[in-house]
Design a protein around this nucleic acid. Structure first.
Length: 889
DNA sequence: CCAACGCATGGAT
DNA sequence: AATCCATGCGTTG
């Protein structure tokens, strides 16, 4: 756009236009080049008087909320000299540094984006290097806005920057939407800074305007451009509209685009989408800004301030698509408020969604009584839900919860780890709840996936809002069908959460990438498992229930289908294409691979392509899914008379889930524990996830010798042995063993232990049928073990926790189990003279490994059911040893 | 006995 | 060190 740089012969200062022979460097432009200024302008710039000199009459002068210093917030020259406050107003960079503000607008870019850079950026701020700030590196959202701020003065002067192009439309749109009140609009004029926020930022801006309304005006006297490094800005005054900034951004040239990206994480996605022109997207953003504030909620400005402190994890990262889906065709403007990853509790049956305090206080109605009040929330499909927004007194504080969310959660098929987003539709002010499934990869049903780039920013931001590939229609009833999710695979990473997964993290969180959107009943899951070729599964009978056990080779996992009977009474199955989500009819006896697409529909050549419509009408599908769900739930409840059996079922269910998941993608070492509870994993059916919150669910005592526990023990042992065996075999092929006795081998091993090793180590018994109390399952063995662990099996232990895993504190039999298994493992290794690992490593296995808990826990021990699941899972997919259990790995 | 309620606890930030 | 918030769990109906 403008000529400024090197080749320019005219002063870049549009108000000057002097011709010069030897340009002097001014501020850095977004392109990375420096504005070439004439001597006079350059001097002014260098002296920090540029704005004062050239923009005195321009709008955008504001006072620092802290020190009162006046700053021209409307131009590029000084854009980095201040930050926008969420609550409105601005703060000069000096004060900002002192108070560490940079709190992102809730509706803004992912923290990951800016946070890390923040400090540096601040540093840069004082420097006149725009590039650093806007161009090359992440820019704190607050500043970002400034880039787009409009300085009334300037449009005429400067050649427009690329990103300015679209603004007008944005503005129009904004106005059209009536998002901004007259006053706010007016303020905009005066108050550039507030206006220019992009996306989220824009919202901010808007809010600021509304909230502080006068922020900009306060400074009335623009006389004293207080700020530091005046640089020249060049934005058309119109650009003020908040919303538009994002648009503008999108149209920006590459460099600038990049900058933008950095500027606003959230936007990024939008920008991407709306590359060409600001679309509604923009509108959304912009709109938001205006609406977002406390005003709306009738909250005092103080609240707004509080919002500034929203934790990054709650920052909404709604994508354009999501926004569009929410707003549909309407002219509504969506203001993303916040988002939250569902915890096990949130997603459980309790029906209580814990709301981040700050978010609740900032965006939800103020409530003074614990009872709170009913809150109507619309989902992305337009369905309205009524929740009770309330709080519990907690530590002199409050804990806000949304009660009665179960139906909604189920409707959206959400699980722990999924993310719910709260937005507000403007101008109605309605709350909208969207969601983003943790898994994305092939979630065809959603028609969108959210891939998170390394930086944590959704790259193609899609439809988080659910499977509504369709524009929202108020009439459309959202129906939950667990089946719909069956094909879902998880594959996206959430960098955000990664940070919490370090070793220090005792409670593993559900990582998006690990999430499995599988919700199948035991039978469904088992039905998906078929014996591998040439493998005869043994059958385990637990409390009258028979379960196939694949001890030799991992079973084959099939794709979930829904069995039904067609109109002519013929038994069929319905299966959902992983790519297009369409449901296809296949023969009842067909067994599909876990990943199945229309192209595999060999039974119906006419429907080999995803483009071909599905036979089922929406209604039929709904019925089908509903029916399926009902059947599934019945099946689960049926055997409830026997707790143990139930436990087993649940465990197996989880196992099945895991197995299925694994088939889709290898299990990462990280656990799929839900947000905070190690026992909860995708598919977890523990008390929190599937039981009432009372905490009275059945638990297994350490001394429990129920069939479930025994089975767990046995299977785990089997798993370990099998794993070891395989590994040994592998190693044997490539390595000759040298060591005879491992110095760290326990001196004394139970006799039966050895037997066990010998018997199971060489080959798994191919039992046709085994009862849970078969010899090798003898729990007494474990109890009598010499192991330092005195505890009995406690299926409820939290293996993830170091303390639980340490010999000293171990209270769980599972630990014991692990210990035994490990010993077995070592023993076997030794006996087979297959000693490849160094003493040290072995030691680690024995002690450190266990102590670390994380390792074992992740792979094997989780609560009773999970324990079973894990073990089973491992057995089923014997090729997938638990990471930590395998020293060689 | 089950569910739901709501406060308490304690890990994480 | 304070606060947040996920989950536990006692209490109540």
């Amino acid at each position: 756009m403008s000529s400024s740089s090197s080749s320019a012969k005219f002063c870049f200062n549009s108000t000057c236009k002097n011709v010069f022979d030897r340009p002097r460097k001014g501020w850095r432009r977004r392109t990375g080049e420096f504005a070439d200024l004439c001597d006079r302008c350059a001097s002014a710039y260098e002296e920090g008087k540029f704005c004062e000199t050239f923009h005195m009459n321009a709008s955008g002068w504001r006072c620092c909320e802290s020190c009162g210093k006046q700053i021209h917030c409307g131009c590029i020259v000084s854009f980095h000299m201040f930050v926008l406050l969420d609550a409105g107003g601005i703060e000069c960079i000096t004060c900002a540094r002192k108070s560490f503000i940079l709190t992102p607008n809730p509706a803004w870019p992912p923290p990951s984006f800016f946070l890390p850079v923040l400090p540096e950026r601040i540093k840069d701020l004082s420097g006149k290097n725009w590039c650093h700030i806007a161009g090359s590196g992440p820019v704190p959202w607050r500043q970002a806005p400034s880039m787009f701020s409009s300085s009334s003065a300037h449009s005429e002067l400067h050649p427009r920057l690329p990103f300015e192009v679209d603004r007008p439309s944005g503005i129009d749109r904004l106005i059209g939407c009536e998002r901004l009140s007259a006053s706010s609009l007016e303020k905009k004029k005066v108050d550039d800074s507030s206006e220019r926020l992009m996306n989220g930022s824009m919202k901010l801006g808007a809010s600021e305007i509304v909230e502080n309304g006068n922020a900009g005006i306060n400074c009335g006297e623009r006389t004293i451009p207080c700020v530091n490094i005046p640089q020249k800005a060049s934005f058309p005054r119109n650009s003020t509209s908040n919303s538009h900034f994002s648009l503008a951004v999108s149209s920006t040239p590459i460099n600038e685009a990049n900058d933008q990206t950095k500027v606003s994480g959230t936007h990024v996605s939008r920008l991407t989408l709306s590359t060409g022109i600001g679309k509604q997207v923009t509108a959304h953003n912009g709109a938001d800004s205006s609406s977002e504030t406390p005003l709306r909620n009738g909250r005092p400005r103080a609240d707004a301030r509080a919002r500034n402190q929203l934790l990054p994890r709650y920052w909404p990262r709604i994508t354009d698509q999501e926004l569009q889906q929410i707003s549909g065709d309407s002219n509504s403007v969506i203001t993303p408020l916040f988002e939250k990853m569902l915890s096990a509790s949130d997603a459980g049956r309790i029906g209580r969604l814990v709301l981040p305090k700050k978010c609740a206080e900032a965006y939800f109605p103020a409530i003074s009584q614990p009872e709170g009040l009913p809150l109507k929330v619309q989902d992305s499909k337009g369905t309205e839900w009524m929740f009770q927004f309330r709080f519990w007194p907690n530590n002199n504080s409050r804990m806000y919860v949304l009660e009665g969310v179960t139906p909604c959660i189920q409707s959206m098929q959400l699980q722990a780890g999924d993310i719910v987003t709260f937005s507000r539709i403007e101008p109605e002010g309605k709350l909208v709840m969207g969601f983003r499934k943790a898994s994305t990869a092939s979630t065809s049903n959603q028609g969108s996936e959210t891939i998170v780039a390394g930086d944590g920013v959704p790259m193609n931001g899609n439809a988080n809002l659910a499977d509504q590939a369709s524009p929202w229609s108020k009439d459309e009833k959202s129906v939950s069908h667990s089946k719909e999710v069956l094909g879902a695979k998880s594959s996206f990473r959430s960098k955000r959460k990664n940070s919490t997964l370090n070793s220090k993290c005792k409670r593993l969180r559900l990582e998006n990438e690990d999430l499995v959107e599988l919700q199948v009943t035991l039978e469904q899951a088992l039905g998906l498992i078929r014996p591998a070729p040439n493998c005869v599964p043994s059958v385990v009978v637990i409390e009258g229930c028979e379960f196939e056990e694949f001890e030799q080779d991992a079973p084959v996992i099939g794709r979930p289908t829904i069995f039904a009977t067609d109109h002519i009474g013929e038994k069929i199955q319905w299966v959902q294409c992983e790519d297009c989500s369409k449901w296809r009819k296949i023969p009842a006896d067909a067994f599909l691979p876990s990943r199945w697409t229309c192209s595999g529909n060999t039974w119906d050549p006419e429907r080999l392509l995803c483009s071909v419509a599905q036979e089922l009408t929406a209604e039929q599908l709904e019925d089908l899914l509903l029916t399926n769900d009902q059947i599934a739930s019945k099946k689960i409840k049926a055997p409830k008379q026997d707790l143990d059996a139930v436990e087993a079922l649940e465990g197996l269910d989880a196992l099945a889930n895991l197995a299925i998941q694994e088939e889709g993608e290898s299990l990462t070492s990280s656990s799929q524990a839900t947000t905070k509870h190690p026992r909860h994993r995708a598919g977890c059916t523990c008390i929190v996830c599937i039981q009432p919150p009372s905490g009275k669910g059945p638990k297994h005592k350490q001394t429990c010798t129920c069939n479930v526990c025994l089975t767990v023990k046995r299977r785990f042992r089997t798993l370990m042995l099998r794993r070891e065996k395989k590994q040994s075999e592998k190693e044997a092929e490539t390595t000759l063993n040298q060591s005879q006795q491992h110095p760290y081998l326990p001196e004394k091993l139970p006799d039966d232990f050895i037997q066990l090793s010998a018997s199971t180590g060489n080959g798994s018994p191919n039992r046709k049928t085994v009862s849970s109390d078969e010899p090798d399952d003898d729990p007494s063995r474990i109890r009598s073990s010499v192991s330092p662990f005195k505890g009995q099996i406690d299926l409820n232990i939290q293996p993830e926790r170091d303390e639980d895993l340490s010999p000293v504190s171990d209270s769980g039999g599972m630990i014991k189990l692990i210990q035994d298994a490990t010993e077995t493992y070592l023993r076997e290794r030794l006996s087979s003279s297959n000693n490849r690992s160094s003493p040290a490593s072995n030691e680690k296995q024995l002690g450190g490994g266990i102590g670390q808990g994380g390792s074992f826990g992740q792979g094997i021990v989780y609560g009773s059911k999970d324990g079973v699941a894990e073990a089973e899972h491992s057995v089923a997919s014997s090729t997938k040893p638990v990471a930590s259990l395998s020293p060689e790995r």
